[in-house]
C-alpha cells in the first residue's frame, strides 16, 4: 500500500518524466525566452499604453461617450472632455474660434483629452468666448479632471473671462495646446 504523500509523489514523478521525454530542454529555453521578450515588447504596443493610461479621467470620458473627431457640434466631440457650457461650434464659431461679436478670454484652464484617432492625449485650453449674451445652444457637461471650485484654476463652473474687456459669457471653446 502507498501512503497519500507517496501517491502524489508518484503522480508528479510520472508527469515530469513524460514531459521530459516529450519536449527538449532547448524548446523550453526558447519558450521562456520568447515569453520574456514578448513581455518586454507588449507594453510598447499602443493597446498596452492605452490600458496603462486607463486611470486618466480624459480616457475614461472618451470611452464612456464614444468620443469622435468629426462633429464639433456634438457633446462627445473629443476635445470637450472637460468643457462645461455652450459649444461655440453651435453658436457661429468653431471648436477653437469665437463666434462673431464675442472675443476669446485671455485666460483659460488647461485639461487633457484623448484623441480617438491616434490614441494620444492632448492638452486642451478651455477658453470662453466673452462679451456677448449667453449663446444657449448645445449645452454640454464634460468634467474630466475638473477640480472643485476651491481649486478655481481647474474648475469649469466658473466663467473664464478674466482679464478680458467683458465678463459676459457667450460660449465655450476648446483649443489644442500640445500633445503630451
Amino acid at each position: 500500500m502507498f501512503s497519500g504523500l507517496q501517491v502524489i509523489d508518484k503522480v508528479f514523478e510520472t508527469m515530469s518524466r513524460r514531459t521530459a521525454q516529450k519536449i527538449s530542454r532547448r524548446s523550453f529555453v526558447a519558450r521562456i525566452g520568447a515569453t520574456l521578450a514578448g513581455a518586454a515588447v507588449l507594453p510598447v504596443l499602443p493597446v498596452a499604453r492605452k490600458a496603462q493610461a486607463a486611470e486618466d479621467p480624459g480616457v475614461e470620458w472618451a470611452k464612456r461617450v464614444e468620443a469622435q473627431t468629426k462633429d464639433p457640434r456634438a457633446c462627445n466631440y473629443w476635445r470637450y472632455c472637460s468643457s462645461d457650457g455652450y459649444l461655440c461650434s453651435c453658436c457661429g464659431g468653431g471648436p477653437a474660434t469665437c463666434p462673431p461679436g464675442s472675443t476669446p478670454s485671455p485666460t483659460s484652464w488647461v485639461g487633457s483629452c484623448l484623441n480617438p484617432d491616434d490614441g494620444k492625449m492632448y492638452l486642451i485650453a478651455y477658453r470662453d468666448c466673452c462679451g456677448k449674451d449667453s449663446c444657449a445652444q448645445c449645452g454640454c457637461l464634460g468634467t474630466a479632471g475638473e477640480m472643485p471650485t476651491y481649486r478655481p484654476q481647474l474648475n469649469n463652473d466658473i466663467i473664464w473671462c478674466f482679464g478680458g474687456s467683458s465678463m459676459v459669457y457667450h460660449c465655450s471653446s476648446a483649443a489644442i495646446v500640445g500633445q503630451i
Binding site: T69, K70, W78, G94, P95, A96, T97, N115, D117, D118, Y122, L123, A175, I176, V177, G178, Q179, I180
Partner: peptide, 21 residues
C-alpha cells in the same frame, strides 16, 4: 501654436504636434 489644428490633419496626415512633457 497648434491652437485650432483641424482634426483631419491628425487623422489623415498624421500631423504630430509639439510634445509637452
Amino acid at each position: 501654436q497648434p491652437d485650432d489644428v483641424p482634426d483631419v490633419l491628425i487623422r489623415e496626415k498624421r500631423t504630430v504636434l509639439p510634445r509637452v512633457a
